[in-house]
Amino acid sequence: MSKMTQRKSLEYIKKDYKRTRTLPGSWYLASYKFKFNITHMKPFLEKLKEKKLIANQCSSCNRVFFPPRLVCGKCFVKPDKWVDIRDTASVSTYAISYLKDPETGEVQQRPMVLVHHDGADTTSIAELAPDVNVKDTYVGMPIKVHWRDERTGGIMDIEYYDKVDDDSDDLRYKK
C-alpha cells in the first residue's frame, strides 16, 4: 500500500484491531526496599505503648499534627515541638463503605471516618467500632480511642474508635 492510499482513511489501522492479544504482566516489587525516617515518629510510637497520644507542632504556624508529620508544608520547616493530646475525638466527616467478603459473599456496612482529635489541628483516617450502628453516625459525634490489648508501639495499637455519650466523663477536662 502506498503512502498516499494510507492517508485516505484510517481503515488500514483499524483492520488490525481484531488481531490484538492480551498478555498478563507483573512488576516484581519484592526486590525494592523502602526507606523512611523514624526520628519524627519514634517518640509518638513509644507513647502509644503507654496508651498516650502525642502530636507534633510547627512553632512557626502553631498547627498541631496528628499523626506527626515530617514537614509542615505551609511553613516549609520541620515541626519541632511535641504536645500531649487527648484520646477523645470527634467525627470530622465520614463515608460508609460496603465491603464484600470474597468467599461468603456477605456484605458489611462499615463507616470510615476522619477523626479530629481534641487538641490537634489535623484529622486522621480511622474506623469506628463494629458495634456502632451506621445509621447513628453523624458529623461531630464524640468518639474515643479503643486501644488494642497488646500494644507493640505501632499505629495499629489504635484498634478503632468507640462511640461515647455526649455527657460522658471521658469528655470532661482533667488535669
Partner: peptide
C-alpha cells in the same frame, strides 16, 4: 546507601536551595 529517609533527602535539597538564595516558602 544513605542513612536518610526519602522525604528527608528531598526536604534537605529544596530547603537548602531556598536557604542559599535567602528565600521563603
Amino acid at each position: 546507601d544513605a542513612n536518610y529517609g526519602r522525604y528527608e533527602m528531598i526536604f534537605e535539597a529544596s530547603r537548602g536551595a531556598l536557604d542559599k538564595a535567602g528565600l521563603k516558602k
